[in-house]
Amino acid sequence: MAASELSARFRPGERVRVRKVYPLGHIRTPFYIRGRSGVVERLCGAFGNPEELAQMRSGEPKQPLYRVRFLQTEVWPGYRGNPEDALEVEIFQHWLE
């Protein structure tokens, strides 16, 4: 069977929010970034879903993976530093809205 992958729903420059949910299991979305909003920096390609792979399943359909840029001041209340300091995190599509 050919590998299946989902098509990308977001474009670079688009504003997105990380879903604020707390499922159990092997999750590659850090807690600190859940519920935060940022801007898509780039689409990295489609990769096996790590939450499925961790259960010894195929990881398909592959999930588009994005690099999302967050402003530090929007991630951490009271952040000290340049107001344009940023954090870039890889987030799978099913975690974005």
């Binding site: 590659r28 979305t29 850090p30 970034i33 990295c44 390609g45 990769f47 790590p50 993976l65 690099r67 840029r69 530090q72 530093g81 340049n82 344009e84 300091d85 940023a86 954090l87 870039e88 995190v89 890889e90 987030i91 799978f92």
Partner: peptide, 15 residues
């Protein structure tokens, strides 16, 4: 310096 922006890259997945 404060004028320099810092970008932190968190390697959370396949990059």
């Amino acid at each position: 310096p404060d004028e320099m922006k810092i970008r932190v890259h968190d390697s959370t997945a396949d990059m």
